[in-house]
């Protein structure tokens, strides 16, 4: 096997290799820290954490799972975007095409759908865990608020995606789900005091969201952009703040 050791040495000691990988896998305390601090992804973590924070029974890993669900939907979502056109004539046909003709189309669609549901469930459980461990108490008050914003964004992501298949389920669920818009006091045409403000079915908050008086082709494009561009971007920004604050505020745990 000496030739193998030779080759390995040749590769790992080459300037190219060393320009990419700064350190090896030696199990030394120094290297363990470099592993985390020298890696752009892993350095979301501090290089050392308190023992209980690594335990499933403390975090339930739910924040991590929520983030994983988000990543799954991003990856599968990009795949779906290659084949899907947000135009009322095509959208439904594209779904069928995706399901029956595209390699792995059905699998990608299923993964996307179930991960979205999974994200909603996981974010609730994560919030419940954070509440049970009292981790929102000082100094982490603000990160809890950021979390609530993320919770709302998660629901909005899921909700805007619901419309895109453009089937009966989609348009009626979105119609029912956004009826609250039309009932908003002052701003919706069926809400209290609408007659004093002068809003009507074509000119109120729901019409603004829909791009018209009811769910239609214009709504599809709006929800598509909200779902694929706007809300994911905003969510990513808040996720960055959320993760940053976990590091700054320190991870919660029992007093030493």
């Amino acid at each position: 096997m000496s030739w193998w050791t030779d080759v390995k040495q040749q590769i790992t000691e080459s300037p190219v290799w060393q320009s990419i990988f700064r350190h090896g896998y030696d199990d030394t305390p120094r290297n363990r820290i470099l592993m985390v601090s020298g890696n752009v992804w892993l350095h979301l973590h501090p290089s050392k954490v308190r023992r209980h924070a690594t335990r499933m029974r403390f975090t339930w890993c739910m924040g991590g799972i929520t983030f994983l669900m988000f990543l799954i939907t991003v990856v599968t979502g990009v795949y779906l975007m290659f084949y899907y056109r947000p135009v009322a004539q095509y959208a439904y046909a594209d779904m069928k095409y995706l399901e029956f003709d595209m390699p792995f189309g059905m699998l990608m669609r299923n993964m996307h759908r179930w991960a979205a549901h999974g994200m909603v469930i996981a974010v609730w459980l994560h919030m419940f865990r954070v509440f049970l461990t009292g981790s929102y108490k000082p100094p982490r008050e603000f990160n809890w608020v950021v979390g609530v914003i993320l919770l709302v964004l998660t629901l909005l992501l899921s909700f805007t995606g619901y419309l895109l298949p453009w089937d009966q389920l989609a348009i009626w669920a979105v119609t029912v789900g956004s009826n609250m818009g039309r009932a908003t006091p002052l701003l919706g045409h069926e809400g209290p005091f609408a007659e004093f403000v002068g809003v009507n079915a074509l000119y109120d908050v729901r019409a603004f969201l829909f791009g018209g008086g009811e769910v239609g082709p214009h709504t599809l494009l709006r929800f598509y952009i909200l779902h694929c561009v706007f809300i994911p971007l905003v969510t990513s920004l808040f996720l960055a703040v959320h993760f940053w604050r976990i590091r700054r505020d320190g991870f919660s745990g029992p007093a030493l």
């Binding site: 592993m35 985390v36 892993l42 290089s47 954490v49 308190r50 690594t54």
Partner: peptide, 20 residues
């Protein structure tokens, strides 16, 4: 002795990886 910290690599990263 008040410090009960462990290295993130491997302790936390391993748990996250398996969970993922």
């Amino acid at each position: 002795p008040g410090d009960d910290k462990v290295h993130t690599w491997p302790h936390l990263v391993r748990a996250e990886f398996i969970c993922a």
